[in-house]
Design a protein around this nucleic acid. Structure first.
Lengths: 344, 344
DNA sequence: GTATAGCACTCTTCACTTGAGAGTGCTAAT
DNA sequence: ATTAGCACTCTCAAGTGAAGAGTGCTATAC
């Protein structure tokens, strides 16, 4: 990895900055005009030639200006951008927090509202995963007599009701009987994460451990299907906005985004990525991660609720985007979300 | 309203049919070749001239063939199409039913799966509203002690759990106390529709009727916010497919669809429309109904669950679409949905 | 009187050309 | 090492012209 000297960094920065602003290939003369760096176009050309050789920029055709490559953007985000102070639009932060705090409902609605706000501010496609259910701590399981053999099973966590479903038993039980059974189950499972509960149920069913109570065994079997699996859904917002943007103007990109959205594997990839590390991450030119999404970038951050439970929130936009601004917006959205979710 | 004679009907039918198949302006020679109707292009031209005068077809420019107008399509759907037997692709129907019957979950998931299947078969944008909550019959309200002052309120209907929420009371009550309160509320509200329950609650709170029990009054007040409002959400599916179709090729239309999707008022319009009448309806060129959706048509049908409760399901596509096929698909989806929802 | 063949006319579409403009790389001079 | 000058390449936009499609009109046949 050959390092770039000061001049090359400056020129690269100038090219990327100009390209973000103007969305056209950037020529040497343009740079010399926009940035009074004291160099003639010819000198800039020499530097650009080197930068192209090193793979940071490229030209669409022989007589065009230079356009940053994915590598160039990557370098920009990693190195060049940090050198400036990331100034945060403070009124934006304020409005963001205000918007979110008006939503007093469950965390799912909150996350949805976050995507709405995010797409509004970013003018790109906002995406978010709901809080992971896997790591939620189970508080109690409750069975309520519903009608004859039918019983309403309710799974409750710290966060509230996680899931409920009407199940049908083999015969009619009294509410008292059900209460005893649920007590027994609670003793065993209360305080564990949803994931561990599922594992434990599977284990117990596998061992066919003789239960002291037939009803408990029965309920255990039925609960297997009720314990919620990982949420395979995600919110997104800002579709209508995206089609207005100049960068999204090509059908190709529109299609790519649609594919990505409807392909649920994308979601899994995303989850994997966010779970690996915390904080705001930038994926430039996503073809390594998700083949259909070349020419697109993603700025994504994680939010948490009670330390461990959390999800991801971010935006998808063209590779050519204002990373500085976007990182700031996403970062603050994630922070605001974390804050409000922790208040409850 | 001048009626069309047999020949004009035939020519109009031929034009529309050809336009649906080929998606190009239809000229007189093309018609004479595709349909050996025994007329020369010249004669067909004369007829076409008349049809244009009457507003059923139009030409994009002087030397182009004719394209059906909205009026033309309207006439086609109303009159010309019925004259053929609407043959149903029976294996399609079968697969449709099979796909839906694999989903054994709640009705919301079922409706979502229906949109997925619908978009798959139609290759257009599928849209559906979940079952209306307003007309659901309340079965019982249940309060479960949760933690100190916190109580889990569960609203149960014939269909299962409608909504649940954790509420906080002013002081600590015993479960027995809560059971008594819920019994009292059940006596009053059980068997009414959700809408009537809400109205009744509002009325009682307005009158500030002295309750025999402070707890009941308290719960009543809290329930006001729990009783679910009309669902303002709707499923849709098939976005990625739409951008592949030749008709959706223009950005203008893509934008229109996005606008329509994100504008929730559209949803309300849709609900109004479906509630007016039952059965499959076709809206050709929707600018009267929804200004942003010119150049788009909608085929929509209603499904029911237990006679009264239901929603709408349909597709949105270009004005130039295969109405016969689409009506068949939508119709069968609605029927299949009704059937499966009634089995529970 | 109705249907048809012929024909002139209009308009789009596409390929091709051309000139302007932008940007580069090379070379020679500072 | 930097820069001015210059030839070169390539895109883009506008213009041109031929081909093709389709119509409307008119005269003619049945």
């Amino acid at each position: 990895m050959s390092k770039l000297d000061k001049r090359r960094k400056e020129i690269l920065w100038a090219i990327i900055q100009s390209h973000i602003d103007l969305n056209i290939p950037i020529g040497s003369i343009l740079i010399s005009q926009r940035f009074p760096v004291g160099l003639s176009p010819a000198t800039i050309r020499n530097t650009m030639s080197k930068l192209e050789e090193m793979g940071y920029i490229t030209q669409p055709h022989t007589s065009a200006g230079r356009v940053p490559t994915e590598k160039g953007y990557r370098f920009y985000v990693d190195t060049l951008m940090d050198e400036q102070t990331i100034s945060i639009n403070s009124d934006l932060t304020k409005e963001l927090s205000e918007r979110l705090s008006t939503i007093t409902q469950d965390s799912d609605s909150l996350v949805k509202e976050a995507t709405r706000t995010l797409s509004l501010f970013s003018r790109y496609l906002a995406i978010a995963t709901p809080p992971k259910t896997e790591e939620i701590l189970l508080k109690r399981i409750k069975f309520i007599k519903y009608e004859n053999k039918k019983v309403l099973a309710v799974i409750i966590s710290d966060e509230g009701v996680v899931k409920n479903k009407i199940i049908e038993l083999d015969k009619i039980y009294t509410q008292k009987h059900l209460d005893m059974a649920s007590n027994q189950l609670n003793c065993e499972f209360s305080g564990l994460t949803i994931r561990k509960v599922r594992e434990k149920i599977a284990y117990q069913l596998y061992k066919e451990k003789t239960m002291c109570d037939q009803l408990v065994a029965n309920l255990l079997y039925l609960c297997k299907d009720i314990i919620p699996l990982e949420n395979d859904d995600f919110s997104l917002n800002g579709l209508s906005g995206t089609s207005n943007l100049p960068d999204f103007a090509t059908m190709k990109q529109i299609k790519e985004i649609f594919r990505a959205i409807e392909d649920k594997r994308f979601m899994l990839k995303l989850l994997q990525l966010i779970s690996e590390s915390k904080g705001t991450q930038v994926f430039v030119g996503m073809e390594n991660i998700f083949p259909a999404m070349s020419e697109l970038s993603m700025v994504v951050s994680t939010y948490t609720k009670n330390k461990s439970v959390g999800g991801a929130v971010g935006i998808i936009g063209p590779t050519r985007m204002n990373y500085k601004k976007m990182i700031s917006i996403v970062d603050h959205t994630a922070k605001a979300l974390t804050q409000i979710l922790s208040e409850t």
